[in-house]
Design a protein around this nucleic acid. Structure first.
Lengths: 349, 349
DNA sequence: TTATCCTTATAAACCGTTTTAGTAACCTTT
DNA sequence: AAAGGTTACTAAAACGGTTTATAAGGATAA
């Protein structure tokens, strides 16, 4: 393996100092009084031999790494992996690489990851925060790191964030169920006080309140063991037979919930209406297809990266916390259209 | 932000040379003749203050980065993102970080990524190779980098690889359709000469040949525009009305294929049987549920990382190319069981 | 003429490690 | 007692950049 050419090789070849080259490479030619002649000579030569500076030497000297650390609940979840992909694409164009990891929504794991990222000296942190890491995020902010949280936020910390309108979306979804004649609408959500979950529940309750409807919220402690989750939901539905519609607060709860419904042989949407927060690629292909709240993946990714790049290029202006609230779209499908001509879906060409 | 403590601070505090500390930290105490006393003193102190060496200084000096570059077709595809997650977990325990990127199966993008990774001096490359990068991989191998390919391989390169038994799996799936009474089985696959696609087709053809059945393979040029793909498959099915079963060669082809079938109002499994290569979290919840070839995600990730770590710790022994061929499981569900009692799923409570 | 100021460029210090090449001190051996 | 061998440790070079401090030479001003 041939050794990589270094800035010193170039200095030798061109018979000039490496300082001059470094200045030119960093766009400081004007500022440092390098003649246009030199600049052009250097740039053409570098272009010709395809020189790329050693990023570790750079990072060592400057303390900057052009790397962003991203931690989400589960990087294999389609929602997060899609966002990750979009972010990476944008960041790449700006010369940044992203390091991903999954927190599994585990406080300790998240703390460890922050430590790991600090150790790797990432320039910025993009976090879908698990509960209990308020303090660690505060420390990052005190140490002047660029931090953006998304998908959810934590009470008591002032940090730039990108969220979807969980409250409004849930309100709208619940309203939709009501308008379609469902009388006893339940919500199945996590037993968690994370902001996005709270907001989803509040939106749901608000819609019910407005119509003077009783609500029934079931909170499940999500286990890795699907069978247990399914059984739990099944029992809930079984012991509340008046329920005629369910709002599942996340994609993976819906996964178990739909299996519970199937096990109970309840017909969707006749016996029970179904809405899910967060769409899945395949929901449209279900029979009946599943109504879902669609989050604007691309928009979320764009906004997060945009905030991050602002913070990175502008280390000072931390003052006003920027909060971006994005709307979702309620994609109405068959699972909530009880009175609809059921055949429509089969009359399509 | 308080400055990080360096090895020099420790040397000063302890009144010894930083060389000694470095030796101890790198487990060379014995080899370099450092007394047990010193060693313990150093280790306890370091533990106490929680010192972590600067990874960039380390990388600069050693040329090693403890980083693995991974490039797959699409990191937001559940198959790849699940593998990525498993890999990361294992690699993390061994002190490695993984950098991910999507090639979009684009030759140029893959070349660029290899360049980027070289620039970031990753120690090893894990690649699901797009066509046309044989040469680039060869160069990596010549330059003594650790390389493992998975999911597919490329003709003419000798590189450690982890694959599933595409041929055998497709053979078995096709056989299964035949055994369940399907007479005219079509395959919908990509118009691509990638190894995994070829093998899947060969397995399918072999099964048909054995029974003297005609086969009908449709190759689609996969577009980002779902509507076009769907239309194409629809037309194929329409102009080959004798087809009574379809084998979809990938997850995302099935996505479009299922929509085509739905649009044509063909009943699964009565009018048409369906098998998909690669399972989806939700296939089991479809009505009818979809028979799929399940790839051993965890096992793939484990084997790939295992090979990679062997290569990294053993830079010499490149000689015998290691090929790992993993079996899949055919998960039989309703979409291929034509004679099954169909009513079960609709016998409502 | 000399002091001053630009313009252009560079030598050397620095970032925080690892590794090479020693060196002192002490112990054997002949 | 001189030569050789261990043992225990370290000074300094190296990695490849960026940044700071400084210098050389010509133009301008006094």
């Amino acid at each position: 393996m041939k050794k990589k050419t270094t800035i010193i090789d170039i200095a030798r070849d061109l018979g000039i100092s490496k300082t001059t080259i470094s200045f030119v490479l960093n766009g400081k030619a004007r500022e440092k009084g390098i003649s246009q002649n030199q600049e052009i000579k250097i740039l053409t030569y570098i272009e010709k031999i395809g020189y790329k500076p050693n990023v570790f030497a750079q990072s060592l000297r400057t303390g900057k790494t052009k790397t962003i650390g991203m931690m989400v609940e589960d990087i294999s979840d389609p929602f997060f992996s899609s966002i990750a992909r979009s972010m990476e694409e944008i960041a790449y164009k700006r010369g940044y690489k992203i390091l991903y990891s999954s927190t599994e929504n585990d406080t300790q794991k998240a703390k460890d990851l922050i430590q790991l990222y600090r150790n790797r000296q990432v320039d910025g942190y993009i976090i879908a925060p698990p509960p209990g890491i308020e303090h660690d995020i505060k420390v990052l902010l005190e140490d002047k790191f660029a931090v953006v949280v998304f998908d959810r936020t934590l009470p008591g910390i002032e940090v730039d964030n990108v969220l979807v309108n969980n409250y409004q979306s849930s309100y709208q979804a619940t309203k939709h169920l009501i308008e379609n004649g469902y009388l006893n609408i339940a919500m199945v959500t996590l037993d968690s006080d994370q902001s996005q979950m709270m907001d989803r529940q509040l939106g749901y309750e608000k819609a019910l309140d407005e119509c003077d409807r009783p609500g029934r919220v079931m909170k499940i402690i999500y286990r890795d063991n699907d069978v247990d989750n399914i059984k739990e939901i099944q029992e809930f539905l079984n012991s509340n037979t008046e329920i005629d519609a369910v709002f599942f607060a996340t994609n993976y709860i819906a996964d178990n919930g739909l299996e519970a419904i199937r096990n109970l042989k309840l017909g969707i949407p006749q016996n029970i209406g179904v809405v899910v927060f967060d769409d899945d690629r395949l929901f449209r292909l279900f029979s009946p297809s599943i109504t879902a709240i669609v989050q604007p993946i691309k928009e979320i990714a764009e906004q997060v990266i945009k905030l991050m790049l602002i913070l990175l290029s502008n280390p000072a202006s931390k003052k006003p916390v920027r909060s971006i609230l994005l709307p979702t779209v309620l994609k109405v499908r068959e699972s909530t259209l009880r009175n609809q001509e059921k055949e429509t879906r089969h009359t399509l060409k």
